[in-house]
Simulated scan of single mutants.
Amino acid sequence: MATVNKLNEAKLIKRSKRIAFADVGEKGTPELVRMQGFSSMSESKSPKEYSRQYVDEDVERSDVVGFATQVGYSFDRHSPFSVHEKIADITDNEKTGSDAQIDIVTVDLFSEGDAKLARKRTYSIIPDTTGDGTDALIYSGNFRAAGDIVMGTAVSKDGWQTATFTEAGDTPAGPTV
């Protein structure tokens, strides 16, 4: 798609066109399931800056030297929905280290073609609260980056309820999830 230089010639992208999938499979056998029932999934890049002022200049300079990305989440617990079960297990049983990590693939449905632009990253689940509210059991917290972004594409054969991720430069192998 060619870019345009006039806003009225561009299309507004709805939030529902960027969706996320959690890997709920066993080690070595990915199973990417759409993350449904989330009332909040807001990403904060939290850039790390290197700032300095040189003696011969009146202005401070800043460079971005890293990121501490996190995604704030909140969901109404549905059982036995696999995504909620995995996050609830980590939260309720106070798991730590690599036992408290999850791979999440974010897919831009607004990208062109059948294979959509996707980003995969491992996140540590940092729980905050459970039980907030009186109508539904609500879980909230943050997914904090525990590794670099892996660029690739995603495809789906079931209307984006599940997906298969292919790392950029790789060719898909085996059955689609």
Rank of each mutant, 00 (worst) to 15 (best):
A88L: 07
R61E: 08
T96E: 06
Y123G: 01
P127T: 11
T91F: 11
I102V: 06
S124Q: 04
Y123W: 13
D76H: 11
S111D: 01
L12I: 14
G37R: 01
R52T: 08
E57T: 12
A88I: 09
T96V: 06
E31T: 11
R52G: 03
E60I: 12
K95A: 02
P127N: 09
S82Q: 10
T69N: 09
R119M: 10
R18Y: 10
S42P: 10
G28L: 02
A100L: 01
G25W: 01
S79R: 14
R119I: 13
A68G: 00
E26A: 09
G37E: 11
E31H: 13
Q53C: 13
R18P: 05
D56Q: 13
D89Y: 05
E26R: 05
I87G: 06
Y73H: 08
T106C: 10
S124E: 07
Q53A: 15
S46N: 15
D56R: 07
D58F: 06
T91E: 02
K17Q: 14
K116R: 00
I102T: 03
A115Q: 05
T91K: 04
S124I: 11
I87K: 03
P47R: 05
V105R: 05
F81D: 14
V33N: 07
P30V: 02
K116I: 12
A68F: 05
D89M: 05
S98C: 00
K27L: 07
D132F: 15
S46F: 07
D23V: 00
K95H: 02
P127V: 07
I104A: 14
V107R: 05
P80M: 11
I13P: 01
M35Q: 07
K86V: 03
S74V: 14
V55I: 07
K45W: 15
D92S: 01
L117Q: 13
Y54H: 04
Q101F: 00
S44Q: 11
I19C: 00
F67P: 10
S44G: 05
D63M: 08
T122K: 05
E31M: 12
R34S: 08
